[in-house]
Design a protein around this nucleic acid. Structure first.
Lengths: 362, 362
DNA sequence: CTGAAAGCGCTAACAT
DNA sequence: ATGTTAGCGCTTTCAG
């Protein structure tokens, strides 16, 4: 049971394989209209299926773009990836998705695989450790577009920086404007740039308002083996655990800023367990405006990102470069107004600080 | 700038290309130990990158498995896909992910693309409209494993059926055991098998308890243009809208069963808006045990599925068949104990029905 | 506008 | 245990 090839189509249509190729592929070589339509008809009759692998082998190309994210099983990414996928599919591309858990070795391995597949575009999100394969990839002319990858600054990479520092500032400023002065930050281990940036934004906003940074209000959750458990999303539990600690160590705090909305959800759940009201006793706030944040009780104040739009923009940017491939001359500068800016979404979980300064003990 | 090929490696190692091929690929042809290690060393020195496309062209194969789901941007799927991805990657496979939105034309197109890529395995989840490409795919010897795809019953497809009917029964039985007799069901348009099954399970459980099915308690949300808006997850809003209708049409209901947890979240949010308490006035329940359901207020009673485990199992099943490819003789019967069963997770959103039978008017 | 022919990099008979 | 060789199906000069 042999495959139908352009040769079969050519023979039946009474033309040469090259002509068939020109019609089936994305060539701009001229072909007369009646020959073209005849080929198309015959191809349909024969149920011809182009062989993409053969094409890729010949053209040294691959119509997939590699997408590297920490994990699709983190509510931040599905929308982003969906945005990417929608524009990719619209342009005849597909996505090669890698869940790398921010792990160095795994990232390297996955990029290696992309190299083996002749992938020419990699979109990397919130990953900042570059790897040998990745460098090799750009050396070989691959197009690397990274979102918030701080160490990707070698030539050849397009580096989108969304301002995570500013993002955190917006949150803290909101809290301060409400009257809060003792603001805790719960965040996972500072092992990537976006977290470092958020921490910096937190400190910066405090400073601007003349509030001293208090180390005791900083809760950095050390990730351990629990990360390996892909069965559940750990951030909520980490929020839970951290708030227990907070209630011991710095109950005088009046607002709790969480690394993301999932963590904020965990924090709210734990407070509720202990019959502590949000926002009356503690204001709680997250980041990302995850899809559930509007519907929780209390609904979550958060800083929103247009994830779906960002995904689309990033992929469009990538495809523009990919399709202009031969032109290696354009600058690696990235227009910084491409991504729609973040904004505060004020909902129920934040309010004025409680007036007493009693230490609340559950 | 030419690529390094097995020929280059062969020359430098002083062996033939075939030997290199046998070492680099997954051949079981014997190669002496010192030749092997020498080749490996030289390959590393030369920074040899195997060309997967060439291999695929030759072997008529592709180490990707196609995964067709409605949308990754629906909280049900990320965990499932993560499970699939983890076992795939562990076996040297990768995933070709398709968000088909249950759309016929798009599904067909995506499968067509998989065909063009020489993909030999397709995993299809909660999709029950088969398409010409899909049939062509199995005709050509492709392995199709579908989860709850009712119309995939043609020979050549492996059909995992999780019992959606039973799943709904479990939910309704729980509600009945609590004392509820007037139970509403909010569900999206019955345009796929899993929804039809849930509806059937709902009716069946009522019947078993001698409770008459009441058409007025059935809220079928007709999906319209809103589906096209990929910007947000519509189910929560649909839950919201439906509960407004419910409060008009059948406020005497005491329990509200929702198609999934997102919808339940929307329902709870709307009830809360109207100062109606859950579960005191209305019990609310969903399906899927989404990651947030444990943390909402009230936390959601739901029917849990082991999404991550299911994904792993499904992919393992697929890879087993793929690696045994030549053996087309095995039966298409699917062991029905492979997927871990669903189970009830009782949390705060359900309780005994309110005792009065007053019509609540917000 | 169309055709002939070379070759992308690999694997798998088949030979040795 | 190793080598030779013939394609897999396509695109793309180059020639007409």
């Amino acid at each position: 049971m042999k495959n139908i090839t352009i040769y079969d189509v050519a023979k039946k249509a009474g033309v040469s394989p090259s002509t068939v190729s020109r019609v089936m592929g994305s060539s701009n070589h001229p072909v007369s209209e009646n020959v073209r339509s005849k080929i198309l008809r015959v191809a349909k009759e024969l149920n011809y299926i182009p062989n993409i692998q053969a094409r890729g082998l010949k053209t040294q190309n691959n119509a997939s773009v590699g997408v590297i994210i920490p994990s699709i099983d983190n509510p931040f990414y599905p929308q982003l990836v969906r945005g990417m996928s929608d524009v990719a599919v619209g342009h005849g591309f597909s996505i090669y998705l890698s869940n790398c858990d921010r792990e160095y070795a795994l990232t390297d391995l996955q990029v290696q695989t992309m190299l083996e597949h002749n992938i020419k575009g990699i979109l990397s999100v919130y990953i900042d450790r570059t790897t040998p394969s990745l460098e090799q990839f750009v050396e070989r002319g691959g197009i690397l577009v990274s979102l918030c990858g701080r160490n990707f600054a070698y030539p050849g990479a397009y580096n989108f920086q969304t301002d995570k520092v500013r993002e955190a500032e917006i949150a803290v400023e909101h809290l301060i404007s409400l009257g809060h002065k003792k603001i805790a930050l719960i965040i996972n281990e500072i092992n990537c740039q976006i977290r470092a940036d958020k921490l910096q934004g937190y400190r910066q906003a405090l400073q601007k308002s003349g509030i001293a940074f208090n180390e005791r209000y900083l809760y950095v959750y050390q990730e351990e083996a629990d990360l390996a458990d892909n069965t559940k999303n750990g951030d909520a539990d980490r929020g839970r655990a951290s708030v227990q600690m907070l209630l011991e160590r710095s109950p005088e705090v009046t607002a709790i800023l969480c690394m993301n909305d999932i963590m904020a959800l965990g924090v709210c759940a734990e407070l509720r367990n202990r019959k502590i009201r949000v926002p009356e006793e503690y204001s709680v706030m997250g980041f990302d405006d995850s899809f559930f944040s509007e519907f929780t009780n209390p609904s979550l104040t958060t800083v929103a990102l247009e994830k779906y739009e960002w995904g689309k923009t990033l992929m469009q940017f990538m495809i523009d470069r990919l399709e202009a491939l031969p032109d290696r001359s354009d600058s690696r500068e990235v227009p910084n107004d491409l991504l729609v800016p973040v904004h505060l979404v004020e909902r129920e979980s934040t309010g004025v600080p409680r007036t007493d300064n009693l230490v609340i003990r559950p």
